[in-house]
Design a protein around this nucleic acid. Structure first.
Lengths: 251, 251
DNA sequence: TAAATAGTGTCTCTCAGACACTATGCA
DNA sequence: TGCATAGTGTCTGAGAGACACTATTTA
């Protein structure tokens, strides 16, 4: 069977239904901790279990569907179809038969990076929504195959920080190098050498650009005022900021 | 509307049909030229236009659907559900409304790397199938949004050669360093320095392992016999083989 | 005044790339 | 014998990481 023959014989009325949904792995950093947006399911199956926010695709692009779901859960405006300062990219699709006990559902997962956002107001029909530190999420806690999706999203996020400037999507429009370093530390789960990180970031063309201003105060426990930077125009980091060599997770 | 409320109210009989298909960007290197498997469409729309091989998803995983489509077009056995020596990975999903003029189709695209294969025998209902050098494919020649899918697949392939050992999927079970270099040259479209490439490949742990044997003959126009290698057990190249710096495609 | 942090200087080691060179084997 | 190719040696420059140090600000 191929596409051509299939489509001509196709009648949705007599074909097993397939549903297409989007699920969003929305990451942010709250109080220095990498966190993901989860909703509590209000109905069976997996009633009262945590799940990634998501829903079915309407008459819209997949990207728009993901933006819409994210906006619904976070309560943020989707101004002109764009959530301000949120990076969104497609992650992967999941379509194993049986991943949803009710019917065949192919889910297109998205990955979102957001600066620290206020607590979400629960969407109308979800029992609740919250930013949950990823370190506290055990393997079996999420509904459906969402643990797998989350794991894939985290790995993608960690890899992307190396060669893309997306760390800036986790901070405000103006930020210090130390704030940027905290993003890397939270996502990678490793502290980075402050001096070397500083020099490295400034040496990558287009990663950040100075604003000419500094913070109003030094650190809470002392220290000079830090220079403020904006995201630059680079789309790729050249050379990349490589993770501290995890060595033998290579085979 | 969210997933829970939606699913309870859901009846496939009265919901706009969405179809899920897989399309495969199958790449190989024939006579030193990067080529992709294309089929000629036998029916409208896009009748007699070239397209990526693909078809609708049955009661199977997405990966299995892609394997099946690939096996159907190439005529290769899918032994134990695995096409021998073919690497297959999910690429991206495409679901813009209107990308198929007949109905809403969400297509999950796959990327396949294969060693040089014989000419495909046309599948029963496709007008024909062939390996086509990618350099000869003009922007508007492919059906649907398949040009876009192909472009995304090529970019993924080029990037993957840098940090994964997948170049070995393009050659036979035993190969010379020069053959491996030809793969990189074909995919990246740039010649690589033979001496440096040689040393670099051997310096990456687990990329290749020697067989202790050599080719039976030297090159057609002279030269010593080359040592033969097998693919090693590394899943990631550490350090990576970076593309000759394309410099300012960075912004 | 003590402590913490921003930012810089410097050294070492590794690696990429350029170039040169030897060895091998085919026409 | 001439030439193309396999494979190695060596040099240079760039960058990563370790470490040290100065300057600035807060409690």
């Amino acid at each position: 069977m191929n596409e051509r023959a299939f489509l001509e014989a196709y009648d949705p009325r007599d074909y097993p239904a397939v549903a297409v949904s989007v699920d969003v792995v929305a990451l942010t950093i709250r109080d220095g901790v990498l966190s993901v947006l989860l909703v509590e399911r209000g109905a069976a199956p997996f009633r009262s279990r945590l799940a990634l926010p998501g829903g079915f695709v309407g008459d819209e692009t997949l990207d728009d569907a993901a933006l819409r779901e994210l906006a619904e859960e976070t309560g943020l405006d989707a101004t002109n179809g764009r959530l301000a300062r949120v990076h969104l990219e497609q992650l992967k699709s999941y379509g194993d038969p049986g991943r949803d006990p009710r019917m065949r559902v192919v889910s297109v997962a998205y990955l979102a990076f957001a600066p620290s956002l206020p607590d979400p107001r629960p969407g109308g029909d979800a029992a609740g929504a919250a930013w949950v530190p990823v370190a506290t999420i055990s393997e079996a806690r999420l509904a459906f195959d969402h643990s797998r999706i989350l794991a894939d999203g985290l790995e993608r996020a960690r890899a992307k920080l190396e060669y893309s400037p997306l760390a800036t999507a986790f901070v405000g429009p103006e930020f210090t190098i130390a704030e940027l370093r905290a993003v890397y530390a939270a996502v990678w789960g490793e502290d980075l050498h402050a001096g070397n990180f500083h020099r490295k970031v400034l040496s990558v063309p287009g990663f950040v650009e100075g604003t000419g201003t500094t913070t109003a105060r030094g650190g809470d426990r002392g220290g000079p005022r830090a220079k403020l930077y904006r995201a630059g125009d680079a789309r790729v980091l050249h050379p990349p900021l490589l993770r501290p060599t995890s060595e033998e997770d290579v085979r």
